[in-house]
Amino acid sequence: MDVHPVPEKDPADWATGDEPMTGPQASYLGTLAQEAGVETPGELTKAEASRLIDELQAKTGRSNQT
C-alpha cells in the first residue's frame, strides 16, 4: 500500500486561524506549558496556539514529528 503524507498547512493560512483557540488547544497548551516551566498567554488565536504547541512540544520532547 502506497501511503503519501498529507502536507501540513501553515496555521497562518487557515481560514479559521484568527478565531479564538479551541478548548482542547487551551488544555494541551496548559499541560505543555507546565512541563516546560513557562506561562502561556491567556488569549490566543487558533493559529497562534498551534504554533505555540509546536514550540512547546519541541521543548518538552513531545514532538510528534518523525
Rank of each mutant, 00 (worst) to 15 (best):
A58R: 09
E39W: 07
P11M: 06
A33W: 02
G23D: 08
M21S: 04
A49N: 02
K9C: 06
Q65V: 14
M1Q: 08
D13V: 12
L56K: 00
L32Q: 01
T40G: 03
S63A: 15
P7H: 11
E19F: 12
T22R: 12
Y28P: 00
G61E: 09
G30S: 04
S63F: 07
W14V: 08
A15P: 02
K46H: 08
T16P: 01
G17I: 06
A15T: 11
Q65T: 14
Q34H: 13
M1W: 07
D54M: 07
D10G: 05
N64A: 10
G17F: 05
S27E: 12
P24F: 10
S27R: 08
K9G: 04
L29S: 01
G42W: 01
T45M: 08
L32S: 02
A36G: 04
P5N: 12
E55V: 14
A58Q: 11
R62K: 14
G23P: 02
D18R: 11
A36K: 01
T40Y: 01
A15E: 13
A15S: 14
N64R: 15
A33P: 01
T16E: 14
L56G: 00
A58N: 08
D13N: 11
M1P: 05
T16D: 15
W14N: 07
E55A: 12
T45A: 07
T16M: 09
G37Q: 08
D10H: 13
D54Y: 06
G30R: 03
L44H: 03
S63I: 06
S50F: 03
T66Q: 14
T22A: 11
K59Q: 13
G42F: 01
D54V: 11
Q34M: 11
N64S: 10
E48L: 08
W14A: 09
N64E: 11
D2F: 14
S63L: 10
L29T: 01
L52W: 02
Q34D: 12
M1N: 08
V38Q: 04
G17N: 07
V6R: 12
D54Q: 11
I53V: 14
T31M: 11
T16W: 08
P24M: 13
K9R: 14
K9W: 04
E8L: 15
P11T: 06
L32T: 01
W14Y: 13
L29P: 00
L29Q: 02
E39F: 07
A58V: 09
L56T: 00
Y28C: 00
G42C: 02
Q57F: 02
D2R: 13
A33G: 06
G30F: 03
Q25C: 05
P5E: 14
L44R: 08
D18P: 02
D13E: 15
L29R: 00
V38T: 14
T60R: 02
A58Y: 04
A47K: 03
A49Y: 00
E35C: 03
Q34R: 11
T66L: 15
E35A: 13
V3T: 12
P5V: 15
Y28L: 05
K46Y: 06
A26M: 04
E39K: 11
L29K: 00
P24R: 10
E39Y: 06
